[in-house]
């Protein structure tokens, strides 16, 4: 039986998202496809699959992206979905461990990639907020002031997300001084 669940995760919550998908798999609901905030599951043996997701450097549709997906599939995993630059895989546990990032260097690189995508969005929202605030005050326009408040709210959200990713990156970098 198939089941569709709509659920939203922010980009910096990818580990929480992965954990949720693995919890579902542990209950016998294996991820079948993933789209924007929409996950489709199919019945499986409880704990039959391990789920992994990651953000690629390139689009999953690019040649580099396709080569990478083919490579991961060659290791026994199934490609089950993509959302922008994010890709979702599942692998039967009986085929062995399933990890995409096994060492600190690749984990740090992955985090930096996500941060590089979110940082410009945060900066952009901040300046749009300032711009709208100035216009709103200058022209006494409530709409512009409201837009600036929204932009500042998004900026705060992104800054909090970036801080969470950065804290994680710092922890990994400390580890990387001692271990691979």
């Amino acid at each position: 039986m198939r089941q569709v669940i709509r659920k939203w995760f922010w980009a910096w919550e990818f580990d929480k998202e992965e954990q949720w998908l693995n919890d579902m798999a542990a209950q016998g609901k294996a991820l079948l496809s993933a789209r924007y905030a929409t996950y489709e599951f199919e019945d499986s043996q409880p704990g039959e699959y391990a789920i992994r997701l990651e953000m690629l450097e390139n689009s999953p549709d690019s040649q580099e992206g396709q080569q990478y997906i083919e490579f991961v599939e060659s290791t026994g995993a199934e490609f089950v979905g993509k959302v922008m630059k994010w890709v979702y895989f599942r692998k039967k546990k009986e085929l062995g461990d399933f990890e995409l990032h096994g060492d600190n260097a690749t984990r740090i690189k992955h985090l930096k990639g996500i941060m590089a995508l979110l940082l410009p969005l945060g900066v952009m929202n901040f300046f749009i907020g300032i711009y709208n605030l100035c216009i709103g005050i200058g022209l006494n326009s409530a709409i512009n002031v409201l837009c600036s408040v929204l932009s500042f709210a998004v900026t705060v959200l992104l800054v909090r997300g970036l801080k969470r990713l950065n804290d994680k990156k710092i922890r990994l970098e400390k580890d990387a001084q001692l271990f691979e």
């Binding site: 990651e54 990478y68 490579f71 991961v72 290791t75 995993a77 062995g96 461990d97 399933f98 990890e99 995409l100 990032h101 096994g102 060492d103 690749t106 690189k109 992955h110």
Partner: peptide, 10 residues
């Protein structure tokens, strides 16, 4: 040592 797919690809 079990190599992760992404690590091996990189």
């Amino acid at each position: 040592l079990r190599l992760a797919a992404g690590t091996l690809y990189g």
